[in-house]
Amino acid sequence: MSRIDETKDFIPIRIAVLTVSDTRSLDEDRSGQVLVDRLQSAGHRLAERKIIRDERDQIADQLRAWIADPDIDVVISTGGTGLTGRDVTVEAHRDVYEKEIDAFGTVFTMISMEKIGTSAVQSRATAGVAGGTYLFALPGSPGACKDAWDGILSLQLDYRHRPCNFVEIMPRLDEHQRRK
């Protein structure tokens, strides 16, 4: 079963937080702040934080810039994963993915079902990998960010988590590019 192996050292990773919103400022960004507080409390490093409008090209461009940055291991976005016309974060993420982590959305939905019941069906949380960087798109509510961090990311971004975790395979994410 899932556990933390205390015999292993914790490895901090560098995480960028992107809030997708047409209306929020940094002072009003509760969801982004939830992620910042949790990642720092876990011992990870905040690499960068931005707020960007719900524009597919702008979101994809920011993701690409962070993917290209060797000082960023993970990007977590919040907002724009719903069903309305302005919700384009999922599409922007998929524009840059090399591989999608299909089970992320499924596991997130399972966790959400426990909290909000069938309303969980309205989320399109997603995750993928590009250029050796993990990308996670979370809903824009503080509760959803807490659920995703506490139920999935805190464990998968901890090198000590067993039987497996995202951190231990991080050095191999871009191995196909190094063979050329």
Rank of each mutant, 00 (worst) to 15 (best):
F136E: 03
L157K: 04
P171Y: 00
G143M: 09
R172L: 11
R160N: 08
C164F: 15
S141T: 12
L153T: 07
A130F: 10
G131S: 06
D147F: 06
D174N: 10
V129Q: 05
L173I: 10
L155K: 12
L138V: 15
Y159P: 09
I169R: 04
R162K: 14
A125D: 06
V121M: 13
V129L: 13
S154I: 08
Q156N: 12
G151T: 04
Q177T: 13
V129S: 06
G151K: 00
C145A: 13
Q156I: 10
V121I: 15
A137L: 12
A130R: 03
F136D: 02
A130T: 01
W149S: 00
P142R: 00
L138P: 12
G151V: 00
G143K: 08
M170L: 15
G132E: 02
P171V: 08
D147N: 09
P163R: 02
L135Q: 07
N165M: 01
S119D: 09
D158S: 06
C164I: 11
R162E: 14
S119V: 13
F166V: 09
D158T: 06
L155P: 05
P171T: 07
A148V: 10
R124M: 08
E175I: 12
F136R: 01
P139G: 13
E168Y: 04
T133Y: 03
S119K: 07
R160Q: 08
I152T: 08
P163K: 04
A130H: 01
N165R: 03
C145E: 07
S119G: 11
C164Y: 14
A144I: 07
G131N: 01
R172S: 15
A127G: 07
G131C: 05
D174R: 01
Q156D: 15
W149H: 06
P142L: 03
I152E: 02
P139A: 14
A137M: 10
D150C: 07
S154T: 11
S154M: 08
Y159R: 12
L138C: 14
D147R: 00
A148N: 06
A148S: 14
W149T: 03
V167L: 02
F136T: 09
R124K: 14
Q122H: 11
T133Q: 02
R124L: 07
T133E: 03
P163C: 00
P171N: 02
R172Q: 12
H161M: 12
S119C: 12
D147I: 09
D147C: 07
T133I: 10
W149F: 15
L157H: 04
R160M: 09
A130D: 07
F166W: 13
M170N: 04
I152P: 10
A148D: 05
D147T: 13
E175S: 14
D158P: 01
S141Q: 04
K146M: 14
T126A: 12
Y159K: 13
R160A: 14
T126V: 15
N165C: 06
P139N: 02
P142C: 01
A137S: 14
V129N: 02
G128R: 02
Q177M: 14
C164M: 15
A144R: 00
A120R: 03
R162F: 07
Y134L: 11
R124A: 11
A125L: 03
C145N: 08
D158A: 11
Q177V: 11
G140K: 01
R124G: 10
F136P: 13
G143I: 10
L153I: 09
Y134H: 02
S141F: 08
G151E: 04
H176M: 09
A144M: 04
E168N: 00
A137Y: 09
L157C: 09
A137G: 11
H176A: 13
